[in-house]
């Protein structure tokens, strides 16, 4: 049986009395690619942050490779954190650092590498995502697509075995978003990592995922593989895929 990279057991999370997720239990196996879809405001990013250990659950347990990130500390926690990479929705690039320094920063903080090695690695990563020429530019001096690429390069700089992507193609044109997904898949196959991505673009979800989850009504529906998702009977999944205006998701959002 394959190892569980992530295990959520009866997890609930609330903010100021509002329940976002209720009693969610899920597993992600090592090496798997999962796409998380769902209407806006349903808690996709919160689910991702729960799994990454950025937000503690109100109830239940989140285990990353069998360990609860909120119950371990010191070197043990750092070792586990080093295996996790994340691309944030707004990229979260350090705006006071240049593109090259953004990649060098995690290497300086976490590894014992020499400055020469760090420079070499950051140049390699910038080249791998196709922005080698932007090494000395600041994040606000490059385009949105380049910022995404830089965010991916930084997330991968420590060779994580578990990578979270929060809406990696948000706000990008179709060609650039296709390139970004190709890049993510290329780097995944190269690093044989586990991948979990939030996206609202079904084409990108199909391209990216082994399995698709949908976050809706405080629950996470495991819609199965791409083919199973396309054939799924749940009317909420069907409406989300088809993009129909009328349906259960519209009434849930307070529409007509």
């Amino acid at each position: 049986m394959a190892l569980a990279a992530i295990n959520l057991s009866e997890v609930s999370i609330s903010f100021e009395g509002n329940t976002v997720l209720h009693n969610v239990s899920l597993n992600v196996t090592e090496g798997e690619s999962v796409a998380i879809i769902g209407p806006s405001g349903q808690g996709k990013s919160i689910l991702l942050k729960l799994m990454a250990g950025l937000v503690p659950p109100t109830k239940g347990k989140v285990l990353v490779r069998g360990e609860n990130l909120f119950e371990i500390s010191g070197a043990r926690r750092q070792k586990l954190i080093n295996k996790i990479g994340m691309l944030f929705q707004k990229n979260a690039l350090f705006d006071s650092l240049t593109c090259g320094e953004n990649i060098a920063f995690p290497l300086r903080e976490v590894t014992e590498l020499s400055e020469k090695e760090i420079q070499k690695i950051s140049e390699e990563f910038l080249a791998a995502v196709g922005i080698g020429h932007a090494k000395n530019l600041y994040p606000d001096e490059i385009s949105g697509g380049m910022q995404k690429r830089l965010g991916i390069a930084r997330a991968l700089a420590l060779h994580p075995e578990l990578i979270f992507y929060d809406d990696p193609t948000a706000g990008l044109d179709p060609i650039t978003s296709r390139k970004i997904i190709d890049l993510i898949l290329h780097l995944k196959s190269k690093n044989t990592s586990t991948l979990i991505a939030v996206t609202n673009d079904m084409n990108r979800a199909y391209q990216l995922a082994d399995r698709i989850w949908m976050v809706v009504d405080q629950q996470v529906i495991d819609a199965g593989t791409v083919e199973q998702t396309k054939q799924h009977k749940d009317p909420r999944i069907r409406q989300f895929i088809s993009g129909e205006i009328n349906g259960p998701l519209t009434s849930m959002a307070g529409g007509e």
Partner: peptide
């Protein structure tokens, strides 16, 4: 600004 642009979360993801 670091808080709202998730830079603080990015620090946490590095174990900082």
């Amino acid at each position: 600004l670091m808080q709202t642009t998730e830079q603080i979360d990015a620090l946490k993801m590095l174990g900082i």
